[in-house]
Design a protein around this nucleic acid. Sequence first.
RNA 1: CGGGAUGUAGCGCAGCUUGGUAGCGCACUUCGUUCGGGACGAAGGGGCCGCAGGUUCGAAUCCUGUCAUCCCGACCA
Length: 596
Amino acid sequence: MRVSRLMLVTLRDVPAEAEIISHQLLLRGGYIRRITSGIYAYMPLMWRVLNKIKKIVEQEMDAAGALQTLLPQLQPADLWRDSGRWQTYTAGEGIMFNLKDRQGRQLGLGPTHEEIITSIAGEIIHSYKQLPINLYQIQTKFRDEIRPRYGLMRSREFIMKDAYSFHSNEKDLKDTYNKMNTTYKQIFSRCGLKTVAVEADSGSIGGAASQEFMVTADAGEDFILISPDGNYAANQEKAISKPPKALSLNPSEPKLIDTPNQKTIEELCSENGLDPSQIVKVLALLASIENGEKHPVLISIRGDQELNEIKLINTLKTEIGKEVLGVTPITQEQLNLQGLSNWPFGSIGPDLEDSNLNGSKNWKTKFLRLIDKTAAELNCFVCGANKKNKHRIYMNWSLLGGTPIEVDLRKAKAGDFCCHNENQKLQEKKGIEVGHIFQLGRKYSEVLETGFTNEVGTQERFWMGCYGIGISRLAQAAIEQHHDEVGICWPISIAPFEVIVVIANIKDSSQKELGENIYLELQAKGIDVLLDDRAERAGVKFKDADLIGIPWKIVVGREAEKGQVELIKRLNRETKLLSTEKVIEKMFKETSGYRK
RNA sequence: CGGGAUGUAGCGCAGCUUGGUAGCGCACUUCGUUCGGGACGAAGGGGCCGCAGGUUCGAAUCCUGUCAUCCCGACCA
C-alpha cells in the first residue's frame, strides 16, 4: 500500500477528548474517528491491526479445536426472558440496547450471546456423543455503558471474540477451561502483550470459577493484587488476604459512653483514645432486587476495614436467592419517604432492632444482618449504642445475640499479607481486562432447559464455559504497553504494516526508482509493506512513520545511488546501512515468524 | 444517576468580563524558494460561534431552556 493512497491524515495536536496516551495516539495517527460517545469508526490502518489480532485469535482457537460461527446481533426478547436476564439487562442494569420492530416485537442488541448459543446448541446437540463442543465468533457487541471512556477501552460498540463450550460433565468443562487458559496465554503473548492472569468475580454472567487476563498498565481501570512470589493474583473485587491483626481491647464491664457528634471512626478514635481495629462499624444499606423488592441490610465490619461491594452483592444473592441489582447506603431522606422514624446514624449498632422498619411503605421489615469475619473475630469491642451520641464499650457478640451470618466482606488491600504465605505482602497494580474465561456450569442450560441424553439414556443439562477477548480493547491496550514519546511502537505481529519504505526525496529519480523496487520486492515476498511515496519533506514522513508505529523503516535517501539504504528499528531506533539485497533478506528474516 | 467542566473551521485554541456582525496556530488549495526529523514567503478556500427562545436598534458575547461531549464514582471484553 502507498501512503499517498492510504487516506492518512495525522494530527499534530492532541484532540481534547483523549485522556490517555493510547487513545491520543490512535486519534493522532488516524486510526480511529469518534462518531458519538463510545462509538468509533475503525479507519483502514486500524482495521488492519484488528484483522491481525483476529487472525491470531482464529488460529489459536482453531488449534484448540474450537469452531468459528457468526451469531445474530439482533436477538428476540423472549430468549432473554427465558434466561431471566431481560429485566436485569434492560430495566435493571440497562446495559442492553433494546427496541421494538414495527410489529411491536421486542428485540435486544447483543451485549453477549449465551442465550442464542445455548438455545442453538440445545436444538442441535442431542447426545453425549456430540460433546464436547466449543463454538466461537468474532463479532461486534453492543453495551449501553453507563460511562464510555478512553476510546476503545470502554466503548458502547466493540469487537469481541466470544466462545461458548458445552460438556457432558464438569471434568470435561474444566479440561476445556484449562485449555482455554493456555490458549489465551498463547494469544496474548503472540500479540506481544504482557498479561497477568487473575482470579476474578464472575459478575452478572454468573457461574463458578473465572479468571481475567489483565494487561498491566497505568491507564487500567481495574485494581489487581499480586503476591511477589507470583503464586497469587486476583482482581481486587475478588481478592482475599489476611487482615492486619486487631489491637486488642482488654475486656472490662460493658458500659455506655458519651460520644457527642462523633460519627466517624476517626472522630471516635481520636476522642476516646481508640484504635479503628477495636471498633465494629455498622453500615445500613438497601439492596435492590430485580423483582423490585428492597431489602434493608446491616453490615458489621471491623472499623479499620473497608467493605467490598462485589463480595457483598454475591453474598446477598445467595442469602436472598434472587438477582441483586445493587446496594446503596440508607439515607435520612429515604427513611422519610418510607414514613420511618429517625435512625441514630453514626451510632448504629449490629443489634439495631427490626422494629425500626415497622410501617415502611415497601421495604422488607426485617434486617438482613451480615458480619464480616474481621468483626466476628473481635472478643471485646466498641460499637454504636443505637442512641444518638452514645456508643458501647467492652462489648462482645454474645451480648449482642451472637453472630448470625459470618462472611468475608472486606476489601483486600496492597500491604495485606497473602493467605497462601504470610511472609508475602500483596502488591497493587492497575490492569486492563482484555480477556475473561468462566466456568458457567449449568446456569444457562437449566434456565433455558437445554441438554442431551447421556450414556444411560437419561436427560441431562449441559455443562458450559464461556471465554471472551476484547479484540478492539486489546488493540488499544497494546499501545498502552508499546509506545514512546513520538508515537506507537506496535509489536510486529499486530502492526498494520511490518515495514515502511520511506523515499526521502521523491523528486530524486534514483531514490524513487530504488524505493519502488524495494517495495515491490518486499511485497512479492509476502511482507506487509507500506511505501511512503508522498511529495512531503523527509522529516514529515519520518514523523508520520514513527507516529503510526510501523516496526521497521527503510529509508531510501542519500545513498540510493550506491544502492544502499538505511534500516531503522522503530523500537530502539537502531540504524544500519545496508545494500538492497541485504535489507530485503533481513526483512524477510525478521517477518518470517509472522507470515500467515 | 450524582459531582465537575466544556461546546467558536477537520484538530488545538483566543475573543465573551465591558454587546457593534469572528480571529490565531496546525491542516487544506495555488505559486515561488527550500528539501534527512512535523520548512519559509506570498496569495486563497472553509464557520447557522451546539440548538431554541428571550433582552436589545444590534448577541459568539447578557438571560432562560435544551442538547451534546469530556472528566470523577457504580458497570465491563
